[in-house]
Write a protein that binds this DNA or RNA. Structure first.
Lengths: 107, 107
DNA sequence: ATTTATTATCGTAATATTGCAATATATAAA
DNA sequence: TTTATATATTGCAATATTACGATAATAAAT
């Protein structure tokens, strides 16, 4: 197979899994860290910084965008990628809610 | 390819990615939630509850164990799986640290 | 209009993941 | 010791992911 049986899980479980999946690659972690620590956040800089080919970075950026973790503003021929702070905060809260409600009983 | 270039990223980035990857499947989310909300946490119950085949559940449990998120105590012919609370708390702190240090500048 | 620079998309190869049937292992009960 | 129960492992098919070369698309500069 290779396909996840999403239909047997609830919305919260699937949503959490999707977000975790987007974050489950060190390149995407590195991109997020790089974007957040730069004044100007431009794709080509990311390529130089991370050390993966430009199409690969572009694809990772697309995945980060797919859950609105980042947003890209077009500035001439460049695109300024930034972390989408409201979504970022929302996801952090979602994670904390998951961690806080999923540790209750324990041997 | 299909293989992640872990060698070009630092330990923190790879570690975060590995943890996120373990959590990036709705079945594993569901297992963690089920384990935490039961008094007795036994693998066979999980199979009945989740709706995936026993080998599939066993494999997911193995992945959760691979990062010490859960621990399994053998009780007769059953195994009592429980959330490993210290690790659970550690990961929550790691995530919060990541989220708090990665949102600084933003358009 | 042509060139240059930046980013996106397509196609593809290599590898990883998901899920399950079949089977193995281990322990308790009969 | 045989049988029943619970869990783990193996092997495999289907699909997903990662990475990149080639190429397209877009916009500024010449």
């Amino acid at each position: 197979m290779g396909v996840t049986k999403t239909q047997i899980f609830n919305i919260e479980q699937n949503e959490l899994a999707v977000i975790f999946k987007v974050l489950s690659n060190p390149a995407r972690i590195a991109i997020l860290q790089y974007i957040s620590h730069q004044d100007s956040c431009i794709c080509n800089d990311i390529v130089d910084e991370i050390g993966l080919a430009q199409p690969t970075i572009s694809q990772h950026l697309k995945e980060l965008k797919s859950i609105n973790l980042i947003k890209g503003e077009i500035e001439g021929k460049k695109v300024c990628y930034c972390i989408n702070l409201p979504k970022w905060t929302e996801i952090q809260a979602l994670f904390n809610s998951f961690f806080n409600t999923t540790k209750s009983n324990c041997c």
